[in-house]
């Protein structure tokens, strides 16, 4: 499973990468905002997207909307990991088709739980 982690702060990308490695997920690529993430997604081969919201260039919510508008990416699982915690934002992300939403600061257990939940649903869908 190849995972793309998108966050403008490299510290956060490293933290998420480390946590994923602990969960046995070693194939991780990175991007620092939506604009650099989108071509990587369009190039194919990414099975899972973890993205921040608040980023320069292109935000995570814009990226999510573009992913859902792309026939090749429409089913890509997307997990948002962000400090954005307003009610309207979570509703917005849900309507845009996010698969999970984690607010920062978060714990390793929360990340594992949300990932498991998303994988479970994907498995059930097949």
């Amino acid at each position: 499973m190849k995972i793309l982690v998108v966050d403008d702060f490299s510290t956060m990308r490293r933290i998420i990468k480390n946590l994923l490695r602990d969960l046995g997920l070693n194939n991780v690529v990175e991007a620092d905002d939506g604009q650099t993430a989108l071509p990587k997604l369009q190039a194919g081969g990414i099975d899972f997207l973890i993205t921040d919201w608040n980023m320069p260039g292109m935000t995570g919510i814009e990226l999510l909307k573009l992913v859902r508008a792309d026939p090749k990416l429409v089913k890509l699982p997307v997990l948002m990991v962000t400090a954005e915690a307003k009610r309207e934002q979570i509703v917005e992300a849900a309507q845009a088709g996010v698969n999970g939403y984690i607010i920062k600061p978060f714990t390793a257990a929360t990340l594992k739980e949300k990932l498991d939940k998303i994988f479970e649903r994907i498995d059930a869908g097949h």
């Binding site: 933290i15 400090a83 920062k104």
Partner: peptide
């Protein structure tokens, strides 16, 4: 490791 998340949050 998790404590380093402060850099992102305070940076924002």
């Amino acid at each position: 490791l998790m404590a380093q998340g402060f850099q992102d949050l305070t940076g924002q």
